[in-house]
């Protein structure tokens, strides 16, 4: 946990410039969503501006201003990795299910995570489900339980790379495994 996030969690009233940036970013995101949903209809902004303001306030009530530390290059790298792997995962599924005898050797695999931030863990778990041969079925106490379609595939190596890519989005370090 970073120091700035701690300051937010105890409910400081005054916003740092980074937190103000977060509020602005949320407003911009909701405005972009409105533009997309109305398909660029200018007349709709009469409703759009109050809606964007309301959405921003509601989101702040649920998730207090935080400091986003997204690395653009890291996010791009993760995006490309995710895209290529998810394409491969579908080809892999197709390759298996069209065979008369489906070649699978499923097992549950416990994978102790090296990323400790919850948001990063959730991204790892959800991404793993869209990658070849892995389906996340539980996430608790820094351990990800994976249902592997083929136990002979290099599951741990693949998950290791995925973890590194996700850590790269936020520029966070990977902890040593505790078990």
């Amino acid at each position: 946990m970073h120091d700035t996030e701690k300051a937010v969690s105890v409910g400081r009233r005054r916003l740092t410039w980074q937190q103000s940036l977060d509020v602005l970013l949320r407003g911009a995101t909701f405005a972009a969503l409105w533009w997309i949903l109305t398909e660029g209809d200018n007349a709709a902004w009469v409703l759009g501006i109050p809606s964007v303001a309301a959405a921003t306030l509601i989101s702040l009530a649920f998730v207090p201003p935080t400091v986003w530390q997204v690395r653009p290059f890291g996010a791009l790298r993760f995006g490309l990795y995710f895209l290529s792997k998810s394409l491969l995962s579908s080809v892999d599924v197709a390759r298996r299910v069209f065979q008369p005898h489906i070649p699978i050797k499923p097992r549950l695999v416990r994978y102790p995570l090296r990323v400790r931030e919850v948001k990063a863990q959730v991204i790892v778990a959800n991404s793993a489900s869209l990658m070849p041969g892995t389906l996340s079925v539980n996430l608790a106490d820094d351990v990800l339980t994976i249902h592997a379609l083929d136990v002979n595939a290099p599951i741990r190596e693949e998950l290791g790379i995925l973890e590194e890519r996700v850590a790269g989005i936020f520029g966070i370090r990977l902890e040593e495994r505790t078990e």
């Binding site: 998810s86 599924v93 299910v97 499923p106 389906l135 249902h147 379609l149």
Partner: peptide
């Protein structure tokens, strides 16, 4: 579990 694998991955790309 195995069914989830197929439907999640293939439908995403489809």
């Amino acid at each position: 579990f195995t069914r989830s694998h197929a439907i999640t991955k293939a439908d995403n790309v489809g």
